[in-house]
Design a protein around this nucleic acid. Structure first.
Lengths: 160, 160
DNA sequence: GTTCTTGCAAACCCTTTGCACGTCT
DNA sequence: AGACGTGCAAAGGGTTTGCAAGAAC
Protein backbone atom coordinates (compact mmCIF):
# COMPACT_ATOMS: atom_id res chain seq x y z
CA UNK A 1 0.00 0.00 0.00
CA UNK A 2 2.94 2.33 -0.38
CA UNK A 3 1.27 4.30 -3.15
CA UNK A 4 -1.72 5.11 -0.96
CA UNK A 5 0.33 7.05 1.55
CA UNK A 6 1.63 9.39 -1.10
CA UNK A 7 -1.83 10.54 -2.06
CA UNK A 8 -3.53 13.27 -0.07
CA UNK A 9 -7.03 11.86 0.15
CA UNK A 10 -8.48 14.93 1.81
CA UNK A 11 -7.27 17.13 -0.99
CA UNK A 12 -8.85 14.84 -3.58
CA UNK A 13 -12.11 14.85 -1.67
CA UNK A 14 -12.06 18.62 -1.62
CA UNK A 15 -11.50 18.76 -5.36
CA UNK A 16 -14.34 16.32 -5.88
CA UNK A 17 -16.62 18.27 -3.53
CA UNK A 18 -15.89 21.48 -5.39
CA UNK A 19 -16.60 19.79 -8.72
CA UNK A 20 -19.89 18.40 -7.46
CA UNK A 21 -20.95 21.76 -6.12
CA UNK A 22 -20.05 23.64 -9.30
CA UNK A 23 -21.81 21.08 -11.49
CA UNK A 24 -24.86 21.02 -9.20
CA UNK A 25 -24.42 17.38 -8.24
CA UNK A 26 -25.07 16.34 -4.69
CA UNK A 27 -22.31 15.63 -2.24
CA UNK A 28 -23.25 12.22 -0.92
CA UNK A 29 -21.54 9.89 1.51
CA UNK A 30 -21.43 7.13 -1.16
CA UNK A 31 -19.56 9.31 -3.64
CA UNK A 32 -16.93 10.26 -1.08
CA UNK A 33 -16.54 6.69 0.13
CA UNK A 34 -16.04 5.52 -3.45
CA UNK A 35 -13.28 8.11 -3.91
CA UNK A 36 -11.63 6.92 -0.70
CA UNK A 37 -11.70 3.33 -1.92
CA UNK A 38 -10.37 4.30 -5.36
CA UNK A 39 -7.28 5.60 -3.55
CA UNK A 40 -6.91 2.26 -1.77
CA UNK A 41 -7.15 0.21 -4.97
CA UNK A 42 -4.13 -1.05 -6.91
CA UNK A 43 -2.98 1.14 -9.79
CA UNK A 44 -5.30 -0.28 -12.44
CA UNK A 45 -8.69 -1.57 -11.39
CA UNK A 46 -12.05 -2.28 -12.97
CA UNK A 47 -15.44 -1.09 -11.78
CA UNK A 48 -16.24 -4.62 -10.65
CA UNK A 49 -12.96 -5.02 -8.77
CA UNK A 50 -13.78 -1.82 -6.92
CA UNK A 51 -17.28 -3.17 -6.21
CA UNK A 52 -15.91 -6.44 -4.82
CA UNK A 53 -13.32 -4.55 -2.78
CA UNK A 54 -15.93 -2.32 -1.22
CA UNK A 55 -18.37 -5.16 -0.51
CA UNK A 56 -15.64 -7.19 1.18
CA UNK A 57 -14.65 -4.17 3.26
CA UNK A 58 -18.01 -3.56 4.82
CA UNK A 59 -19.18 -0.88 2.38
CA UNK A 60 -22.73 -1.22 1.18
CA UNK A 61 -22.75 0.11 -2.35
CA UNK A 62 -24.27 -0.93 -5.64
CA UNK A 63 -22.62 -1.43 -9.01
CA UNK A 64 -24.80 1.28 -10.50
CA UNK A 65 -23.47 3.84 -8.05
CA UNK A 66 -19.89 2.73 -8.68
CA UNK A 67 -20.27 3.18 -12.41
CA UNK A 68 -21.97 6.54 -12.12
CA UNK A 69 -19.44 7.84 -9.58
CA UNK A 70 -16.47 6.64 -11.64
CA UNK A 71 -17.92 8.62 -14.53
CA UNK A 72 -18.16 11.73 -12.32
CA UNK A 73 -14.59 11.21 -11.10
CA UNK A 74 -13.49 10.90 -14.71
CA UNK A 75 -15.22 14.13 -15.69
CA UNK A 76 -13.71 15.77 -12.63
CA UNK A 77 -10.28 14.67 -13.85
CA UNK A 78 -9.45 12.66 -10.74
CA UNK A 79 -9.64 9.34 -12.52
CA UNK A 80 -8.67 8.15 -15.99
CA UNK A 81 -10.20 5.19 -17.78
CA UNK A 82 -8.37 2.90 -20.21
CA UNK A 83 -9.81 0.33 -22.55
CA UNK A 84 -7.01 -2.19 -22.75
CA UNK A 85 -7.57 -5.27 -24.87
CA UNK A 86 -9.79 -8.03 -23.66
CA UNK A 87 -11.79 -7.27 -20.60
CA UNK A 88 -13.37 -4.27 -18.99
CA UNK A 89 -12.37 -0.63 -18.67
CA UNK A 90 -9.51 -0.14 -16.23
CA UNK A 91 -9.44 2.99 -14.12
CA UNK A 92 -6.59 4.69 -12.33
CA UNK A 93 -6.11 7.70 -10.08
CA UNK A 94 -4.90 10.54 -12.28
CA UNK A 95 -2.71 12.09 -9.58
CA UNK A 96 -0.48 9.03 -9.31
CA UNK A 97 1.31 9.66 -12.62
CA UNK A 98 -0.15 12.26 -14.93
CA UNK A 99 0.21 12.28 -18.73
CA UNK A 100 1.58 8.81 -19.17
CA UNK A 101 0.98 5.94 -21.55
CA UNK A 102 1.18 2.18 -21.28
CA UNK A 103 3.43 -0.59 -22.44
CA UNK A 104 1.77 -4.00 -22.22
CA UNK A 105 3.93 -7.09 -22.08
CA UNK A 106 2.15 -9.80 -24.04
CA UNK A 107 4.20 -12.46 -22.23
CA UNK A 108 3.22 -11.75 -18.63
CA UNK A 109 0.45 -9.18 -18.90
CA UNK A 110 2.49 -6.65 -16.97
CA UNK A 111 1.56 -3.02 -17.55
CA UNK A 112 4.48 -0.60 -17.60
CA UNK A 113 3.76 3.10 -17.42
CA UNK A 114 5.97 5.61 -19.12
CA UNK A 115 6.11 9.33 -19.80
CA UNK A 116 7.28 10.49 -23.21
CA UNK A 117 7.27 14.27 -23.67
CA UNK A 118 8.30 13.81 -27.31
CA UNK A 119 5.05 11.95 -27.85
CA UNK A 120 3.06 14.96 -26.70
CA UNK A 121 4.88 17.10 -29.24
CA UNK A 122 4.28 14.56 -31.98
CA UNK A 123 0.59 14.34 -31.12
CA UNK A 124 0.21 18.11 -31.35
CA UNK A 125 2.16 18.25 -34.58
CA UNK A 126 -0.02 15.59 -36.21
CA UNK A 127 -3.23 17.24 -35.04
CA UNK A 128 -2.12 20.57 -36.48
CA UNK A 129 -1.55 18.94 -39.85
CA UNK A 130 -5.27 18.21 -39.92
CA UNK A 131 -6.25 21.61 -38.52
CA UNK A 132 -7.40 20.02 -35.28
CA UNK A 133 -6.55 20.72 -31.67
CA UNK A 134 -5.41 17.67 -29.71
CA UNK A 135 -7.39 17.18 -26.52
CA UNK A 136 -5.83 13.96 -25.32
CA UNK A 137 -4.36 10.75 -26.63
CA UNK A 138 -3.93 7.11 -25.79
CA UNK A 139 -0.87 5.13 -26.82
CA UNK A 140 -0.62 1.45 -26.09
CA UNK A 141 2.54 -0.43 -26.98
CA UNK A 142 2.32 -4.21 -27.10
CA UNK A 143 5.67 -5.80 -26.49
CA UNK A 144 7.40 -9.07 -25.74
CA UNK A 145 10.58 -10.09 -24.06
CA UNK A 146 13.56 -10.33 -26.43
CA UNK A 147 13.78 -14.06 -25.79
CA UNK A 148 10.37 -15.60 -26.00
CA UNK A 149 9.02 -16.74 -22.66
CA UNK A 150 11.85 -15.17 -20.72
CA UNK A 151 10.08 -12.09 -19.50
CA UNK A 152 12.17 -10.66 -16.64
CA UNK A 153 8.99 -9.82 -14.76
CA UNK A 154 7.32 -13.20 -15.05
CA UNK A 155 8.92 -14.43 -11.85
CA UNK A 156 7.91 -11.27 -10.06
CA UNK A 157 4.35 -11.73 -11.24
CA UNK A 158 4.22 -15.36 -10.20
CA UNK A 159 5.51 -14.41 -6.74
CA UNK A 160 2.59 -12.08 -6.07
CA UNK B 1 -16.43 1.90 -53.90
CA UNK B 2 -13.21 3.34 -55.22
CA UNK B 3 -11.11 1.69 -52.54
CA UNK B 4 -12.40 -1.77 -53.41
CA UNK B 5 -10.96 -1.69 -56.93
CA UNK B 6 -7.49 -1.05 -55.61
CA UNK B 7 -7.43 -4.25 -53.61
CA UNK B 8 -6.51 -7.54 -55.28
CA UNK B 9 -9.10 -9.82 -53.74
CA UNK B 10 -7.68 -12.96 -55.30
CA UNK B 11 -4.30 -12.30 -53.78
CA UNK B 12 -5.85 -11.80 -50.35
CA UNK B 13 -7.80 -15.03 -50.72
CA UNK B 14 -4.59 -16.85 -51.60
CA UNK B 15 -2.87 -15.45 -48.53
CA UNK B 16 -5.80 -16.49 -46.38
CA UNK B 17 -5.90 -19.96 -47.96
CA UNK B 18 -2.18 -20.44 -47.28
CA UNK B 19 -2.63 -19.32 -43.68
CA UNK B 20 -5.53 -21.72 -43.14
CA UNK B 21 -3.57 -24.59 -44.65
CA UNK B 22 -0.46 -23.91 -42.58
CA UNK B 23 -2.44 -23.56 -39.38
CA UNK B 24 -4.52 -26.67 -40.16
CA UNK B 25 -7.79 -24.79 -40.40
CA UNK B 26 -10.26 -25.75 -43.08
CA UNK B 27 -10.75 -23.73 -46.21
CA UNK B 28 -14.49 -23.21 -46.26
CA UNK B 29 -16.71 -21.30 -48.64
CA UNK B 30 -18.01 -19.17 -45.73
CA UNK B 31 -14.52 -18.01 -44.76
CA UNK B 32 -13.70 -16.95 -48.30
CA UNK B 33 -17.05 -15.21 -48.77
CA UNK B 34 -16.49 -13.28 -45.54
CA UNK B 35 -13.09 -12.12 -46.80
CA UNK B 36 -14.68 -11.01 -50.08
CA UNK B 37 -17.28 -9.00 -48.19
CA UNK B 38 -14.67 -7.46 -45.87
CA UNK B 39 -13.08 -5.99 -49.02
CA UNK B 40 -16.44 -4.52 -50.03
CA UNK B 41 -17.06 -2.88 -46.64
CA UNK B 42 -16.26 0.76 -45.87
CA UNK B 43 -12.90 1.42 -44.22
CA UNK B 44 -13.97 0.85 -40.62
CA UNK B 45 -16.73 -1.63 -39.91
CA UNK B 46 -17.99 -3.67 -37.00
CA UNK B 47 -18.73 -7.38 -36.93
CA UNK B 48 -22.43 -6.61 -36.85
CA UNK B 49 -22.24 -4.19 -39.77
CA UNK B 50 -20.54 -6.93 -41.78
CA UNK B 51 -23.27 -9.35 -40.70
CA UNK B 52 -26.04 -6.99 -41.80
CA UNK B 53 -24.24 -6.27 -45.07
CA UNK B 54 -23.91 -9.96 -45.87
CA UNK B 55 -27.50 -10.80 -44.93
CA UNK B 56 -28.82 -7.98 -47.10
CA UNK B 57 -26.67 -9.17 -49.99
CA UNK B 58 -27.99 -12.69 -50.15
CA UNK B 59 -25.26 -14.32 -48.08
CA UNK B 60 -26.43 -16.82 -45.50
CA UNK B 61 -23.99 -16.53 -42.63
CA UNK B 62 -24.22 -16.42 -38.85
CA UNK B 63 -22.76 -13.92 -36.43
CA UNK B 64 -20.71 -16.68 -34.80
CA UNK B 65 -18.96 -17.44 -38.09
CA UNK B 66 -18.33 -13.76 -38.73
CA UNK B 67 -16.69 -13.32 -35.34
CA UNK B 68 -14.57 -16.45 -35.64
CA UNK B 69 -13.49 -15.63 -39.19
CA UNK B 70 -12.62 -12.03 -38.32
CA UNK B 71 -10.39 -13.45 -35.59
CA UNK B 72 -8.68 -15.74 -38.12
CA UNK B 73 -8.24 -12.84 -40.55
CA UNK B 74 -6.73 -10.82 -37.74
CA UNK B 75 -4.27 -13.56 -36.85
CA UNK B 76 -3.47 -13.92 -40.54
CA UNK B 77 -2.66 -10.20 -40.61
CA UNK B 78 -5.22 -9.37 -43.27
CA UNK B 79 -7.44 -7.44 -40.90
CA UNK B 80 -6.76 -5.15 -37.96
CA UNK B 81 -9.16 -4.53 -35.10
CA UNK B 82 -9.49 -1.27 -33.18
CA UNK B 83 -11.31 -0.64 -29.93
CA UNK B 84 -12.30 2.98 -30.29
CA UNK B 85 -14.27 4.51 -27.45
CA UNK B 86 -17.89 3.72 -27.00
CA UNK B 87 -19.19 0.96 -29.19
CA UNK B 88 -17.92 -2.22 -30.69
CA UNK B 89 -14.58 -3.25 -32.16
CA UNK B 90 -14.00 -1.75 -35.59
CA UNK B 91 -12.12 -3.77 -38.17
CA UNK B 92 -10.29 -2.68 -41.29
CA UNK B 93 -8.43 -4.34 -44.15
CA UNK B 94 -4.73 -4.13 -43.30
CA UNK B 95 -3.62 -3.75 -46.93
CA UNK B 96 -5.50 -0.49 -47.40
CA UNK B 97 -3.08 1.57 -45.33
CA UNK B 98 -0.50 -0.31 -43.29
CA UNK B 99 1.09 0.96 -40.08
CA UNK B 100 -1.16 3.90 -39.44
CA UNK B 101 -2.88 5.37 -36.43
CA UNK B 102 -6.08 7.29 -35.85
CA UNK B 103 -7.10 10.83 -35.06
CA UNK B 104 -10.67 11.04 -33.80
CA UNK B 105 -12.53 14.32 -34.04
CA UNK B 106 -14.71 14.61 -30.95
CA UNK B 107 -16.88 17.21 -32.74
CA UNK B 108 -18.05 15.17 -35.72
CA UNK B 109 -16.84 11.65 -35.01
CA UNK B 110 -14.70 11.66 -38.11
CA UNK B 111 -11.76 9.24 -38.10
CA UNK B 112 -8.60 10.53 -39.77
CA UNK B 113 -5.83 8.06 -40.52
CA UNK B 114 -2.23 9.12 -40.47
CA UNK B 115 1.22 7.58 -40.80
CA UNK B 116 3.96 8.84 -38.50
CA UNK B 117 7.31 7.10 -38.99
CA UNK B 118 8.72 9.07 -36.04
CA UNK B 119 6.15 7.36 -33.86
CA UNK B 120 7.45 3.95 -34.82
CA UNK B 121 10.95 5.04 -33.78
CA UNK B 122 9.66 6.43 -30.51
CA UNK B 123 7.75 3.23 -29.78
CA UNK B 124 10.85 1.13 -30.33
CA UNK B 125 12.97 3.46 -28.25
CA UNK B 126 10.55 3.32 -25.33
CA UNK B 127 10.28 -0.47 -25.51
CA UNK B 128 14.04 -0.81 -25.45
CA UNK B 129 14.21 1.26 -22.30
CA UNK B 130 12.25 -1.48 -20.59
CA UNK B 131 14.17 -4.32 -22.27
CA UNK B 132 11.14 -5.26 -24.33
CA UNK B 133 10.63 -5.75 -28.04
CA UNK B 134 7.72 -3.76 -29.49
CA UNK B 135 5.31 -5.94 -31.42
CA UNK B 136 2.73 -3.35 -32.35
CA UNK B 137 1.11 -0.25 -30.99
CA UNK B 138 -2.11 1.70 -31.04
CA UNK B 139 -2.22 5.48 -30.83
CA UNK B 140 -5.51 7.30 -30.71
CA UNK B 141 -5.54 11.08 -30.71
CA UNK B 142 -8.76 12.75 -29.62
CA UNK B 143 -9.06 16.22 -31.09
CA UNK B 144 -11.45 19.09 -31.65
CA UNK B 145 -11.77 21.87 -34.16
CA UNK B 146 -9.92 25.04 -33.17
CA UNK B 147 -13.23 26.90 -32.95
CA UNK B 148 -15.73 24.86 -31.06
CA UNK B 149 -18.49 23.45 -33.21
CA UNK B 150 -16.88 24.61 -36.44
CA UNK B 151 -15.42 21.31 -37.55
CA UNK B 152 -14.58 21.67 -41.26
CA UNK B 153 -15.84 18.16 -41.86
CA UNK B 154 -19.18 18.50 -40.10
CA UNK B 155 -20.90 19.67 -43.26
CA UNK B 156 -19.40 16.82 -45.21
CA UNK B 157 -20.63 14.37 -42.63
CA UNK B 158 -24.14 15.83 -42.55
CA UNK B 159 -24.31 15.60 -46.35
CA UNK B 160 -23.81 11.84 -46.34
C1' DG C 1 -14.97 -41.83 -41.18
C1' DT C 2 -13.21 -38.55 -38.38
C1' DT C 3 -12.60 -34.05 -37.18
C1' DC C 4 -13.65 -29.38 -37.88
C1' DT C 5 -17.03 -25.77 -39.04
C1' DT C 6 -21.53 -23.98 -39.29
C1' DG C 7 -25.93 -21.89 -37.68
C1' DC C 8 -28.86 -21.10 -34.17
C1' DA C 9 -29.98 -19.80 -29.74
C1' DA C 10 -28.73 -19.34 -25.33
C1' DA C 11 -25.29 -17.80 -22.27
C1' DC C 12 -21.97 -14.53 -21.06
C1' DC C 13 -19.67 -10.22 -19.53
C1' DC C 14 -19.72 -5.47 -18.81
C1' DT C 15 -22.52 -1.57 -18.43
C1' DT C 16 -26.82 1.11 -18.32
C1' DT C 17 -31.60 1.77 -17.08
C1' DG C 18 -36.31 1.72 -14.66
C1' DC C 19 -38.35 2.02 -10.56
C1' DA C 20 -39.45 2.49 -5.65
C1' DC C 21 -37.32 4.20 -1.72
C1' DG C 22 -34.21 7.21 0.68
C1' DT C 23 -31.48 11.46 1.15
C1' DC C 24 -29.61 16.11 0.26
C1' DT C 25 -30.70 20.95 -0.12
C1' DA D 1 -41.31 19.74 -0.47
C1' DG D 2 -38.89 18.81 -4.21
C1' DA D 3 -35.31 17.12 -6.91
C1' DC D 4 -31.73 14.15 -7.03
C1' DG D 5 -29.15 9.76 -5.70
C1' DT D 6 -29.35 5.02 -4.28
C1' DG D 7 -29.94 -0.09 -4.54
C1' DC D 8 -31.77 -3.71 -6.76
C1' DA D 9 -32.89 -6.31 -10.53
C1' DA D 10 -33.76 -6.42 -15.11
C1' DA D 11 -32.49 -5.00 -19.71
C1' DG D 12 -29.08 -3.82 -23.07
C1' DG D 13 -25.22 -4.28 -26.47
C1' DG D 14 -21.44 -6.85 -28.02
C1' DT D 15 -19.25 -11.22 -28.07
C1' DT D 16 -18.65 -16.17 -27.01
C1' DT D 17 -20.22 -20.84 -26.39
C1' DG D 18 -22.87 -25.46 -26.55
C1' DC D 19 -24.85 -28.38 -29.46
C1' DA D 20 -26.77 -30.89 -33.47
C1' DA D 21 -26.36 -30.99 -38.37
C1' DG D 22 -23.33 -30.55 -42.23
C1' DA D 23 -18.89 -30.06 -44.79
C1' DA D 24 -13.76 -30.60 -45.38
C1' DC D 25 -10.15 -33.53 -45.24
Amino acid sequence: METAERVDVEQLKERFATFLQEQRYRNTAERMRILECVVEMPKHFSADELYVYMRTHGEKVSRATIYSTLELLRRCGLVVGHRFEGGSTKYELAVRLPNHDHLLCTDCGRIVEFCAPQLQELVEQISQQYALRAVRHSLQIFAQCPEFGRCPYQRELAAQ
